[in-house]
């Protein structure tokens, strides 16, 4: 068995914000009827969390459920418990119309923290990231410069950012450039 590594392999940058590789993380795409009781119960059984409302994220200890689209969720769990979690979902959703796929190695997962985190991200995404507009628990899929990305904000003020593995290097360098000291805009005070 080969050793799994993240595309950025633990990269870290400290500038106006701290950008760091979040490490190996289990990610499962779950598609189905999000309003159904079956999907709700299956998610509860698999990661112990509720289904988030539209464009929201529900986080637990080392797990999260993210609202990707009207019929799609992304479940975050420990990297080595993915097959177990998918098995639980498949068992709970037997007979339903659904899809549960391991996408852990198809994504890059970054953490963005520090005082300049909002501003760093706002330089790259066409999203209002002011404290009043983007509050903890919100989840947003958007464009980060030239690539699609998704992020959510936790209670501690850390942004969790996901993009495709193939653009990991680009995304990291992009954030790094946006967070270079000297590039303060201080638009959010």
């Amino acid at each position: 068995m080969s050793e799994a590594v993240t595309p950025l392999n633990g990269a870290r940058f400290e500038g106006l914000a701290t950008i760091e590789d979040a490490g190996l993380t289990g990610m499962i795409t779950l598609r189905g009827d999000l309003a159904s009781k079956e999907v709700k119960d299956a998610v509860q059984k698999a990661v112990g969390l509720d289904i988030p409302a539209q464009r929201q994220a529900v986080s637990g200890q080392g797990s999260a459920v993210l609202w990707m689209s009207p019929d799609e969720l992304l479940l975050i769990c420990a990297y080595d418990s993915v097959s177990q979690t998918i098995a639980t979902l498949e068992e709970a959703l037997k007979g339903q119309h659904f899809l549960a796929v391991n996408v852990s190695d198809a994504r890059t997962y970054l953490h963005l923290s520090g005082a300049g985190a909002r501003e760093t991200l706002a330089k790259l995404c066409p999203v209002d990231l002011s404290e009043a507009a983007f509050t903890p628990g919100m989840f947003r899929r958007t464009r980060m410069a030239q690539v699609p990305a998704a992020f959510w904000l936790d209670e501690a003020g850390t942004f969790h950012l996901i993009c495709f593995r193939s653009v990991a290097d680009y995304a990291f360098n992009l954030l790094k450039t946006a967070a270079l000291p000297g590039g303060e805009v201080e638009i959010y005070g």
Binding site: Q54, R55, S69, P70, P126, V127, R140, R141, T142, R143
Partner: peptide, 12 residues
């Protein structure tokens, strides 16, 4: 109308 996001053209 599907996810309720109001975004600028480049996101679409």
């Amino acid at each position: 109308p599907c996810c309720g996001v109001t975004g600028e053209e480049t996101e679409f």
